[in-house]
Design a protein around this nucleic acid. Sequence first.
DNA 1: TCCAGTCTTTCATATTTATGCAAAATAGCT
DNA 2: AGCTATTTTGCATAAATATGAAAGACTGGA
Lengths: 152, 152
Amino acid sequence: MKKQERQRYIKRLLSSREIERQEDFVSLLRAENIDVTQATISRDIKDMQLVKVPSATGGYHYSMPVQKKMDTEKKLKRTLKDAYVSYATQDKFVLIKVLPGNGPALASLIEDMHYEHVFGTVGDDSTVLIICKSLDATLELQQTLQRLLSDN
Amino acid sequence: MKKQERQRYIKRLLSSREIERQEDFVSLLRAENIDVTQATISRDIKDMQLVKVPSATGGYHYSMPVQKKMDTEKKLKRTLKDAYVSYATQDKFVLIKVLPGNGPALASLIEDMHYEHVFGTVGDDSTVLIICKSLDATLELQQTLQRLLSDN
DNA sequence: TCCAGTCTTTCATATTTATGCAAAATAGCT
DNA sequence: AGCTATTTTGCATAAATATGAAAGACTGGA
């Protein structure tokens, strides 16, 4: 499955960098040895319903679609509230304990959010380890999670 | 204030129709005797951080930005929870009673959401009247409001 | 294997969107 | 009012994006 794999890469790129133009996707994918043209990216973007957001700083960047993002955050919030047990943090890591069975779901929701600050996540049955991109990022993420936990 | 007024119009158009291209804004505004070029619209869109969303049905349409939408919904939820007293509905109307002083705020938040189903709102000190676009729309809106009230 | 149908990609290009620059409008002064 | 600085706009066009049409890949039979 070529297309799906590429679209997974695209998702990953989305969260890792500020992507301003479709051609950026082309270059970045080329760097990973995936060869496509802008035309294909345009169709992928339509498929995946990505949007080009005018950023506060004056530029533009591609991002997840509105609805999906809202839905995901809602699910994430619910899962957190339902299953949250405790959390700890050290260095660039945030370790969340949840009720048995909820680890993978939570990890996957966090992935889906494509948080700027998150490098990656792993989850077993009752634990999710989030690896952040920096110490600052870790703080930011903590705040995000706390916000989600305390309703709002 | 020319620009701001135009941008208010743009917001209103956003919620009332599916707008596919910037030129559509130009035509629709022209119909309201506001004369602009696509260049200006492009800049307005950047200002307002509107996004062009690939819709499920194959086309594209402009829409409110992610962050703002989420923020507004949050505020709306909080206001509702804080100030809600009761509501009633009849025909295409939903009438919400709130604690004194909260009417205008609530009305304005509902406006800001640009709900598909809402034709318009008016609020006095402790009442908000929402006029929906159809009977079905009224039901939909009720559900939306109930969802907001019952957390989620 | 060979074929028909379906899906995906590229190429070329049409369409749409963004922007540099000059002109016009607006806002503050005095 | 008259002048200057700032903001906003349109024009022209560059830049970016979307898409028809043809070619290539893949799929599931016969």
